[in-house]
């Protein structure tokens, strides 16, 4: 059923990683992503792999789930790898005295190397962000983003409003999906056909779904706005939270682990 969809990929269990402060998790993930773009040697990736394995073990999420995030971008990874493999200039590889070269395509040592590095980067990038989204509920994620962006509200960035919009969007996606389903069934009962015909016809068939959906969304938005006003909502100013974010020992330890990781990467980059 459409009703049962889970949003994001949050995996609700208890673990040291789950109970970390979302701000720290977001920052660590960002630093991690930047770090993997500075890594040049394969030894660096060994360090990254160890760090990721450590984090996944600690989060008690299965590896399968973390790796699942790679599937949607598998094509992108393969494509990048192939481009790098065939298009990089350099020393052409010989196998049994035959140079691997056909027209403008060639396999070089440098190409082989950069294809590996690029694919590894993408894989670890996805794994890193997966760990973040698997261990942090959408609410905490938006709270974290709001808090991290709040210093910028002085220069006019509407941090609270953005977070509120994200929360409401998350809240209403299941409701609207259910409604879409209802409208589609209602149109199908009157003989609408969404499955056959060419792409233009199919797109046209969507209009009778989108129009009522839009109208009802506006009505919902209007009612929600009044209901929020009735509950004394007046923007982010002076607002408190049920669960205030708190940075604890656990978070400092995580920061420390991140710093160690960075130091290892720098050393590897310098000496290996």
């Amino acid at each position: 059923m459409l009703k049962d969809i889970t949003l994001g990929q949050y995996f609700p269990i208890e673990s040291p990683v789950h109970s970390m402060d979302p701000r720290i998790k977001i920052i660590i993930t960002l630093v991690f992503i930047i770090a993997i773009f500075f890594i040049k040697s394969l030894w660096g990736f060994v360090a990254v792999a160890l760090y990721v394995i450590f984090a996944v073990k600690l989060s008690r999420v299965s590896f399968k789930l973390v790796l699942k995030g790679i599937r949607p971008i598998l094509f992108l990874i393969i494509f990048t790898a192939l481009i790098n493999l065939f298009m990089t200039n350099g020393e052409i590889v010989n196998i049994g005295g035959v140079p691997l070269k056909a027209g403008f395509l060639k396999i070089t040592k440098e190409g082989f190397y950069s294809a590996t590095v690029m694919s590894l980067r993408l894989v670890f990038l996805v794994m890193g962000t997966s760990i973040l989204t698997l261990t942090t509920s959408p609410i905490l994620l938006t709270d974290g983003v709001e808090k991290l962006l709040s210093p910028f509200s002085k220069i006019g960035l509407p941090a609270h409003e953005l977070a509120m919009m994200m929360t409401i969007a998350l809240r209403f996606i299941p409701t609207l999906l259910e409604e879409t389903d209802k409208i589609m069934k209602a149109q199908m009962a009157r003989g609408a056909d969404f499955e056959s015909g060419n792409i233009i016809n199919r797109a046209k068939a969507l209009i009778p779904i989108l129009v009522p959906l839009f109208i009802s969304s506006f009505r919902r938005a209007d009612e929600l706005a009044v209901a929020m006003e009735c509950r004394c909502y007046r923007g982010g100013k002076g607002r408190t939270r049920l669960n205030e974010l708190k940075i604890g020992t656990r978070d400092w330890i995580a920061c420390l682990s991140m710093l160690t990781f960075m130091a290892v990467i720098v050393l590897i980059n310098m000496y290996l």
Partner: peptide, 21 residues
Amino acid sequence: DNQIVATIVEEDVAFAAENLG
């Protein structure tokens, strides 16, 4: 459906009290 703001029951119940500071 059009009055509930948050994605978790207790967060929604807290909404008004949060607004009041």
